[in-house]
Design a protein around this nucleic acid. Structure first.
Length: 426
RNA sequence: GGGGGAAUACCAAAGCGGCCAACUGGGAAGGACUGUAAAUCCUUUGACUUAUGUCUUCGUAGGUUCGAAUCCUGCUUCCCCCA
């Protein structure tokens, strides 16, 4: 029961907590929650970091509640944002909220005494009218108190709307609501949520004279301090339709040595000894990527399942291994297709392919601008030696050498060292 | 309400009548080296064009000029000072 804090501590997931938190957790099964606003149709790995706190909470024997922010998402959290955000329209928001609720369910255990729950704050806010809100919530916190928050202070210069200013009250009320209805006394989140969480604690204290607690984790950043969770393609999503399991696996595998130890602590469920072991092995033979492989395996399996993981590994071996193009050619087509499931696929009409004269045209327009966004881009890439087709380097951007189609149907296009595309002739 | 300043490519920031598709830095992308790492070095970073040419860009709409990112006017947005 009491192990949560220690667990978070050694994993480097403890940034701040209120003084009595440990005592609360030691006092038997506690209940804690984290909120996720539906700003997109999927959670991304940044959300996964905070979600892991909830997972750790449950592993320590407490009850986790994941909150989908159907209401708060309508308002916009000013934390960590340098400017006012645009509203998402309601239809999108509802869709996102449903997708996210589903994803949240995947990571928690819904059985047993400390069964998880997923709730949506839209349920208690949709019929909460403005005047009632002002009387029941707004009255309890002063402007002075609200103004002091970093999330607000950072926006004083650039401007903050009344709407976003009010965000902390909404989140504060969530906490209060969960306290009242589910005796939830702990809220967790990224360190940028500290201000919002303490608003909730304050609200509970003033309305109920009760004590509630907070734990925040450091925001995961890259070694250079920049924002974590973006790959070349953009955000790394948990939804396999948005980031394929192959790309997801690759993201972890490509983790830098200096970041891997931090990442494996936060994102994997591997134990302290196992990790120490891996680090030792890794240090002895860094080129074998022990740490990265273990990290990628643990996370990919948990997010996408064992078989998707295995396919991703297989695809990686084929694409990055020494296997010659002939080997790819010899794979049964069904295997080949499943292996390449994760790499972007581009369908091109057979006739168009056969009459193709120009490499730059092929890499841009013919392949629907999915490989290169313009012909000049394609030309520059080729001039820099960055393009391979069927593993063969392209040197002339004006000509179109004839390539043997793999399996009489596919072309493997490589942009740079790690970006593959499968062109399918139809 | 009065006065002043600013809007430049992904970001930051030069340019202040022709030499500007626009200095420089960051970021990003590609290459070499490696371990699908780091560091380092090189290249690229508006589009089209099998080159040094054309077209579209410097908040927005007009104007002055042979010629404007650079000057003028209206509009929009933002910042600062006074009330």
């Amino acid at each position: 029961m009491s192990q949560l804090m220690n667990e978070l501590r050694w994993r480097g997931m403890l940034h701040n907590s209120t003084p009595e938190t440990e005592k609360y957790l030691n006092g038997g099964m506690g209940t804690g929650y984290i909120g996720f606003d539906p700003t997109a149709a999927s959670l991304h790995i940044g959300n996964l970091a905070t979600l892991m706190m909830l997972v750790q909470l449950q592993r320590a024997g407490h009850k986790p509640i994941a909150l989908a922010g159907g209401a708060t998402g309508m308002v916009g959290d000013p934390s960590g944002k340098s400017e006012e955000r645009k509203f998402l329209d309601e239809e999108v928001l509802r869709y996102n909220q449903d997708c996210i609720s589903e994803q949240l369910k995947q990571f928690l255990d819904f059985s047993g005494a400390n069964a998880a729950e997923v709730v949506n704050n839209y349920d208690w806010f949709k019929n909460f009218n403005f005047l009632d809100f002002l009387r029941q919530v707004g009255k309890h916190l002063t402007i002075n108190y609200m103004m002091a928050k970093d999330s607000v202070q950072n926006r004083i210069e650039t401007g903050i709307s009344y709407t976003e200013f009010t965000y902390q009250l909404l989140q504060g009320y969530d906490f209060y609501h969960l306290y009242k209805t589910k005796n939830c006394r702990l809220q967790m989140g990224g360190s940028d949520q500290w201000g919002n969480i303490t608003s909730g604690i304050e609200l509970i204290r003033r309305k109920e004279s009760a004590e509630a607690h907070a734990i925040t984790c450091p925001l995961v950043t890259k070694a250079d301090g920049s924002k974590f969770g973006k790959s070349e393609q953009g955000n790394v999503w948990l939804d396999p339709k948005m980031t394929s399991p192959y790309q997801f696996y690759q993201f972890w595998l490509k983790a830098k040595d200096e970041e891997a130890p931090k990442l494996i602590r936060v994102f994997s469920l591997l134990g302290q000894e196992k990790i120490a072991d891996l680090e030792k092995t890794h240090a002895e033979a860094p080129h074998l990527l022990h740490l990265q492989r273990a990290l990628a395996e643990d996370v990919t399996v948990r997010v996408h399942g064992r078989s998707a993981y295995e396919t991703a590994v297989k695809a990686s071996e084929i694409l990055f291994g020494k296997s010659a193009i002939e080997e790819i050619n010899q794979l049964p087509e069904s295997v080949l297709l499943s292996v390449f499931e994760g790499v972007p696929q581009i369908k091109v009409a057979r006739e168009e392919l056969s009459k193709q004269q120009d490499m730059q045209e092929f890499l841009s327009n013919t392949t629907q601008l999915k490989i290169c966004p313009s012909k000049s881009e394609a030309r520059k890439l080729i001039q820099n030696g960055g393009v391979r087709i069927n593993k063969e380097k392209i040197t002339d951007f004006a000509a179109m050498p004839t390539f043997e189609l793999l399996q009489n149907k596919y072309l493997l296009v490589q942009k740079g060292k790690t970006n593959y595309f499968l062109v399918i002739a139809e």
